[in-house]
Computed example of a mutant assay.
Amino acid sequence: MTKEFAGKVALVTGGGSGIGAACARQLADEGAKVVVADMHLEGAQQVVETIKAAGGEAASYQIDVSDPVAVAAMVDFTVTTFGGLDCAVNNAGIGGPLKPIAEYEIDEWRHVIDVNQNSVFYCMKYELQAMLPNGKGSIVNMSSILGTNGIAAAPAYVSAKHALVGMTKSAAIAYSAQGVRINAVAPGYIHTPLVENSLDEESLKALVGLHPIGRLGRADEVANLTLFLLSDRASFITGSYHLVDGAYAAQ
């Protein structure tokens, strides 16, 4: 049986844990050669080892996605290592401080915007340059339910995720006729290190209560939708924003 991504090359940022790791593993399971990129090299290497142990092909890459020169080098590494780039998941991100906007330090704001928003521009810029000569490709940008909703204590994160949706739509309009599809996925609160490490047990319980489904999401559930959007089965889907949120945003 032919695997859905056989013969394709994929790049996943923030691939060393959580949603990124789930996407990287699923892509490899479906036959893709995967570059697992993360600021924390050890996490990326662990994901690569898991992929290789299952018979897949993967390589790790350490990256600070807020550095455009480093992002260009990452895409070049992907093309050089595996011969091209067909799919990309721009997933790397940080939560940032939890406090209202008047209390935010300027450097804190800039850091969150650099990692969560500017990095997606850098990634798409160089990913598109690798894809367009082949007349095909698919990109998924990892947004959030906070790409349309807001909360008082995360103004930088909310701003970046809103902007990411706008970038996705603009890029999809610009490049869909050239064969590259670009979509955004919007997870609700997912059991990932980003959530678990930033909140205490009481806060985590409160988050569960915000989801009518009665639980937080799983990384593999977000990866399931991401892979569909990357695949040829989603050939007429581009410029869209897709929720995976247990009805959080439906309230």
Rank of each mutant, 00 (worst) to 15 (best):
R25P: 00
G179A: 07
G96P: 01
C87Q: 12
M39G: 14
A59F: 08
A223H: 02
N224F: 12
A154G: 10
S235H: 11
V35Q: 00
S203A: 15
F228I: 07
I106S: 14
E127M: 09
T168D: 05
S176K: 13
V120E: 00
G7I: 07
N118I: 10
I106Y: 15
K205S: 12
V140C: 05
I63Q: 09
L207P: 03
E221A: 00
S176F: 13
A88C: 10
N183Q: 07
I145H: 01
E30F: 10
A234S: 07
R218A: 15
A59E: 09
A177E: 12
E57Q: 13
N134V: 15
T50W: 10
A88G: 06
R215C: 06
A152K: 13
S60A: 14
G246N: 02
I145T: 04
S231G: 09
E221W: 01
I113V: 09
R218F: 15
A70S: 09
V185C: 03
E201V: 13
G188C: 06
D114L: 10
V180H: 01
R110Y: 13
L41G: 09
T80S: 15
P212A: 09
L230W: 01
A21Q: 05
V208M: 05
P187S: 11
G239A: 08
T50E: 13
I237P: 04
F5R: 00
G137V: 03
E42K: 12
A171M: 06
S170M: 12
G16N: 05
M1F: 15
G15I: 03
A153W: 14
L41A: 12
I113P: 01
E4R: 14
A219M: 03
G83L: 10
H162D: 02
V120A: 02
A53L: 11
A174G: 05
A153C: 14
L132K: 01
V208K: 04
L146G: 01
A172I: 04
K169G: 04
G31V: 06
L194W: 02
G135L: 09
A177Q: 13
L164G: 01
L41C: 11
G18S: 02
E49G: 12
V195Q: 08
A174Q: 11
L85V: 00
K33R: 14
H211R: 00
E108H: 03
S159M: 07
V208E: 06
C123M: 12
A152S: 13
S170W: 09
A160K: 01
A250Q: 09
R233Y: 13
F5K: 02
V79D: 04
K33P: 02
V244E: 02
G137E: 05
S144V: 00
F82M: 08
L225V: 09
A58L: 03
K161A: 00
R181F: 03
M39V: 15
G135D: 08
F228T: 05
C87K: 11
Y248H: 07
G7Q: 07
G93L: 04
T78D: 03
G95N: 11
V115C: 00
D114P: 05
D245E: 07
K52E: 06
L199Q: 11
N197V: 11
M39S: 15
A6W: 12
D245R: 04
G179K: 08
Q62L: 09
K125M: 08
A32K: 02
L85M: 06
G179S: 06
P187L: 11
V75W: 04
S17W: 03
A28S: 08
Y61V: 11
Y241V: 12
H40Y: 15
M1N: 14
